[in-house]
Write a protein that binds this DNA or RNA. Structure first.
Length: 603
RNA sequence: GGGGGCGUAGCUCAAUUGGUUAGAGCGCUGCCCUGUCACGGCAGAGGUUGCGGGUUCGAGACCCGUCGCUCCCGCCA
């Protein structure tokens, strides 16, 4: 027996045909004298009818005995549903299949949770959904996410192929590169004491491919990072990874904008406007207090350093005297925050390094605040004008060195926006996507604890050419040719133009990052060597494919767009990985376990 | 590594200030039902309150520990 149609196929035009459907029992409505079975497959569902005057008693009883999610094959006659019994909510709702034969392909046991009811199923404990992932994925909304993911992957391949990119796989058995994220290491039998490491990204291989003359490479690359997880982070994840030769930043932007435009068109039927806006890192920090601003909301930060230059308020005075700034955020209409919420804001400010939180609540025409008594009239007027203060506003201040002050208010801004959205006071159309390129990041950041410079992104990022002279003398002011693509405050991806000159790369490693030459040689020697045999200028980018899909699907967690995701602790509840290995395997790998003392008794 | 939330029937939840035999809806089982589509009706079964310890005359609730899920900070070149 073969199926003749899928479950979202039958229409009035099929009336009179004998068909065979195969699928899952979505729901059974047993009216005693007649039984309705909805058969579901990945395309949709179709109602079948068991009428005792049309089928044998045995078949009828079998139909009556079926539990939801059993797999069946039903052969019968397509007919128009009787007047008044059509179901406009499903595509096949004008017809039904009058069953003649029923084969039970697999009888399902009683389910751990309901699959057929989207309302309840979506509220089921995620632990259970992950343990029975195959049931969870049967839910139409999960299947929809998988379908969309496949569609977007295909569109990505098609677009990049049109643009002349070659899809090339790179090794997942790589070696350890201890800079950056913690890695998963893989022992190997043939090399006692040596380890592979799973790549955090194909960065080095894709640059080598440029040296190899590939010119345009892409890959839907699996990447692995052994770091603590979040709603938008998994230990293994997928990137749309690409690299191009003989390009500048704008060339990469053009390809990525075209790709995202194609993806939005294919997935959502939405036409994105190009080019996307650009913003310098410095401006992003200055205006939004973060390097991935959500520009859907206003609420920009203001700089009041000039205003408070001769302030009597010591906190402001000192910050400015030490070369810092005074910044402020007008949280419009938020004066009504509770004491608890104000404490929460203060806590957030402290976490970001503030000593406290200066604020003004504008209520009843009055500025209620412990600090306002230190303001001179001119300061007050300027604050009023600069922040466009109105009744009901909440003014938040940060006085510190520039970056810290920006970051403090940036976090408060996000919290305040979150509350305003929850209260329904800030709204935005659901299909709005604010894309933004953030560029001109500092190439290097200073690590106070270890008293050394390190790469803000990675050590292969090329400096902005006119800043190269500052590399050794004033590293702080060197900008990198790095760029991030941001949408609605989510960092969707990042990339850079790379260094392709071996001497410049060597300078960065040894003079700027202060890595010992033998360490550089051991870790990156092959790259420096490759660059000596004709390396084209090149650059690229990697986009977080899971985050991209979460955006397109409207999912809150990337777990909802990954078929088999891991928990926040990095385990798989379905397969119970990671799991132990046999002593024999350890012996072959020349490994011996030194376990931490066992704690607790388990569940 | 740190902080918050959650854990009670198969599922989603309730259980006043610590006080009777831990309840409801859905699901499940049985019976009835020929036009339902969240079918309906009647009856019934179903509990180690995550686990371990403690306080108390008495603990689902309070305390300590622990396990699991989750969100956030650190971390993620």
């Amino acid at each position: 027996m073969k199926r003749t149609h899928h479950c979202n196929e039958l229409r009035l035009e099929h009336v009179g045909q004998t068909v065979t459907l195969m699928g899952w029992v979505h729901s059974r409505r047993d009216l005693g004298g007649v039984i309705f079975l909805d058969v579901r497959d990945r395309e949709g569902r179709t109602q079948t009818v068991f009428d005792p005057s049309e089928v044998s008693k045995a078949v009828f009883e079998q139909a009556a005995s079926l539990r939801p999610e059993s797999v069946v094959a039903i052969t019968g006659l397509v007919r128009r549903r009787p007047e008044g019994t059509t179901n406009p909510r499903i595509a096949t709702g004008e017809v039904e299949v009058l069953a003649r034969e029923l084969v039970i392909l697999n009888r399902a046991e009683v389910l751990p949770f309901a699959v057929d009811d989207p309302e309840t199923a979506s509220r089921v404990n995620e632990e259970l959904r992950l343990r029975y992932r195959y049931l969870d994925l049967r839910r139409p909304e999960m299947l929809r996410n998988l379908k969309l993911r496949s569609k977007v992957a295909m569109a990505t391949r098609a677009y990049l192929e049109e643009q002349g990119f070659l899809e090339i796989e790179t090794p997942t058995l790589f070696k350890s590169t201890p800079e950056g994220a913690r890695e998963f290491v893989v022992p190997c039998r043939n090399h006692p004491g040596l380890f592979y490491a799973l790549p955090q990204s194909p960065q080095q291989f894709k640059q080598i491919l440029m040296v190899a003359g590939v010119e345009r490479y892409f890959q839907l690359a699996r990447c692995y990072r052994d770091e603590d997880l979040r709603a938008d982070r998994q230990p293994e994840f997928t990137q749309i990874d690409l690299e191009m030769s003989f390009v500048e930043r704008e060339d990469v932007y053009a390809v990525v904008e075209g790709l995202l435009q194609r993806i939005w068109r294919v997935a959502l039927g939405v036409e994105l406007k190009r080019p996307f806006p650009r913003m310098r890192f410095r401006d992003a920090m200055d205006r939004y207090g973060i390097d991935k601003p959500d520009t859907r909301w206003g609420l920009e930060l203001a700089d009041l350093t000039e205003t408070f230059h001769g302030s009597d308020f010591k906190v402001f005075q000192q910050a400015i005297a030490q070369g810092g700034v005074v910044k402020a955020l007008n949280a419009k209409a938020m004066a009504g925050l509770t004491q608890g919420q104000m404490e929460q804001l203060t806590g957030l400010a402290r976490e970001s390094g503030a000593k406290g939180l200066a604020y003004i609540k504008v209520e009843g025409g009055e500025w209620k605040s412990p600090i306002v008594k230190f303001f001179r009239e001119a300061e007050r007027v300027q604050v009023q004008n600069r922040l466009k203060v109105e009744e009901g506003d909440l003014l938040l201040f940060a006085a510190d060195e520039w970056q810290k002050a920006c970051e403090i208010l940036g976090r408060l801004r996000l919290q305040v926006i979150d509350w305003a959205r929850q209260a329904g006071r800030l709204q935005v159309e659901p299909g709005r996507f604010d894309f933004l390129w953030v560029e001109d990041f500092p190439l290097l950041s200073f690590d106070k604890e270890n008293n050394r410079w390190y790469s803000s992104h990675h050590p292969f990022t090329a400096p902005v050419p006119e800043d190269i002279p500052w590399l050794k003398t004033d590293p702080r002011r060197v900008r990198g040719q790095h760029y991030d693509i941001v949408v609605n405050g989510v960092e969707l991806g990042g990339g850079s133009i790379r260094i392709h000159q071996p001497d410049l790369q060597k300078t960065v490693f040894e003079d700027v990052l202060q890595l010992p030459p033998d360490l550089v040689k051991g870790r990156f020697g092959y790259m420096l060597e490759a660059f000596r045999y004709g390396a084209p200028p090149h650059g690229g980018i990697a986009l977080g494919f899971d985050r991209l899909m979460a955006l397109l699907c409207g999912a809150e967690s990337i777990r909802d767009v990954i078929a088999f995701p891991k928990t926040a602790k990095g385990t798989c509840l379905m397969t119970e990985s990671p799991g132990p290995v046999e002593p024999r395997q350890l012996r072959e790998l020349h490994l011996e376990l030194r376990m931490p003392p066992t704690r607790g008794t388990g569940p």
